[in-house]
Computed example of a mutant assay.
Amino acid sequence: MTFKFKAIDHIQLAAPKGGEEEARRFFNGILGLEEVEKPETLKKNGGVWFAYGNVQIHVGIEEPFSPAKKAHPAFEVENIEELKKHLLENNVDIIEDNRLPGANRFYVSDPFGNRIEVLEWT
């Protein structure tokens, strides 16, 4: 093969029409991700983008909307217990999961019901 995959550029999550402010509250306000300005040619589609490091989270508007209950991004973090405490203080429900050997992990849902996995390798 003459091609190769290099990295994940972005992850797309869906939101219902008008969900931009709620996405900002969660992804920027609670999770602390930086909002990234969308290209002018894509602004008319709605939605909002966020970034951490070299990865972006694109929250796009989808009508009709249906949250991803099984498919999900998984984020590796440092100091997962502090993040868990922070999320609980911000009224974000956590679903504990100890089925992955070598990982401390849990699941949360974004404001639209999309599943998100958070893990720290032990």
Rank of each mutant, 00 (worst) to 15 (best):
M1S: 12
M1D: 10
T2S: 15
K4G: 12
K4M: 13
F5H: 13
K6M: 15
K6D: 14
I8E: 04
I8H: 01
I8G: 00
I8D: 00
D9P: 01
D9M: 05
H10E: 00
H10K: 09
Q12A: 12
A14S: 15
A15S: 14
A15R: 11
P16F: 08
P16W: 11
K17Q: 15
G19M: 08
G19H: 04
E20I: 01
E20G: 00
A23T: 00
R25Y: 07
R25Q: 05
F27K: 00
F27C: 02
F27E: 01
N28D: 11
G29M: 04
G29T: 03
G29K: 09
L31W: 00
G32H: 00
L33F: 07
E34V: 07
P39C: 07
E40I: 08
T41V: 15
T41Q: 12
L42P: 05
K44C: 13
G46D: 10
G46S: 13
G47V: 07
V48T: 14
V48H: 03
V48M: 12
W49Y: 05
F50C: 04
F50I: 05
F50V: 04
A51W: 01
Y52P: 01
Y52R: 08
G53N: 08
V55Y: 05
V55S: 08
Q56R: 14
I57M: 09
H58Q: 09
V59I: 15
G60Y: 03
I61W: 10
E62R: 15
E63V: 12
E63G: 10
P64R: 11
P67E: 14
A68Q: 13
A71H: 10
P73A: 02
F75C: 07
E76M: 09
E76A: 10
E76T: 07
E76C: 06
N79R: 14
N79F: 08
N79T: 10
I80K: 05
I80N: 06
E82N: 08
K84F: 07
K84H: 06
L87A: 06
N90R: 10
N91C: 09
N91V: 06
N91G: 10
D93H: 13
D93G: 12
I95E: 15
I95P: 00
E96N: 14
E96I: 12
E96H: 11
D97N: 15
N98A: 13
N98P: 06
L100D: 08
L100R: 13
A103M: 14
A103K: 15
R105K: 12
F106H: 02
F106I: 06
Y107P: 00
S109C: 13
P111D: 06
F112A: 04
G113K: 06
N114I: 02
N114T: 03
R115F: 11
I116G: 01
V118E: 03
L119C: 12
L119K: 10
E120W: 11
T122I: 15
